[in-house]
């Protein structure tokens, strides 16, 4: 039983282009400079920004939104710097991530980190041990920066309801 073949459609690309940051999907000519430049692509075989963008351009919406691949981008923006058409794969993948979240897919690592930062107001509350406090004292640094968690908790309920 062979898998049913996909028929290309431009609707997914149109959807991405309609969200701020996703307009660049219209610029890609599949030249491959992004894949050639990408640090992640050089160490992770399955990750190729050009391939991911072509998947968007032919309308593989489900596959792209349920995959880990768009979350592997490091956001280093080297591809953006090099793209000959002035497109930013980083911005495109940001939009993909937002859509993925809407459809209910977030990698665990991202879910956890986001939850932590919104509840605590900053990332490393749990890691701030006594030893570290002591190190800071020895260096004559402020030991209590009074990180604010109230604001980020409000953001959690406003923007992330039902998401994390």
């Amino acid at each position: 039983m062979s898998k049913e073949l996909h028929s290309p459609t431009s609707s997914f690309a149109m959807e991405i282009a309609s969200i701020p940051g996703g307009e660049d999907i219209r610029k890609c000519i599949q030249c491959g400079i992004c894949s050639a430049t990408c640090s992640v692509a050089s160490v992770v075989d399955k990750y190729r920004p050009r391939k991911l963008i072509q998947k968007i351009l032919i309308g593989e919406r489900n596959e792209v939104l349920k995959d880990d691949l768009p979350w592997l981008c490091m956001m280093c923006r080297t591809c953006e710097d090099r793209c000959q058409e002035g497109a930013s794969p980083v911005d495109i993948f940001h939009v993909v991530r937002q859509l993925a979240v809407k459809e209910g897919y977030i990698p665990d690592a991202f879910k956890q980190a986001t939850k932590t930062v919104l509840l605590d107001g900053w990332m490393l509350e749990d890691a701030y041990s006594d030893f570290i406090e002591e190190d800071r004292e020895n260096l004559n640094l402020d030991t209590n920066l009074e990180w604010n968690e109230e604001f980020t908790r409000r953001l959690m309920s406003k923007y992330f309801k039902g998401v994390i």
Partner: peptide
């Protein structure tokens, strides 16, 4: 700068541009 919060890079950045 006391009473600040995380700048939101990387994680919140990916999930909600407005947050």
């Amino acid at each position: 700068l006391h009473n600040a919060n995380c700048c939101g890079a990387q994680y919140v950045e990916s999930l909600s541009p407005n947050a």
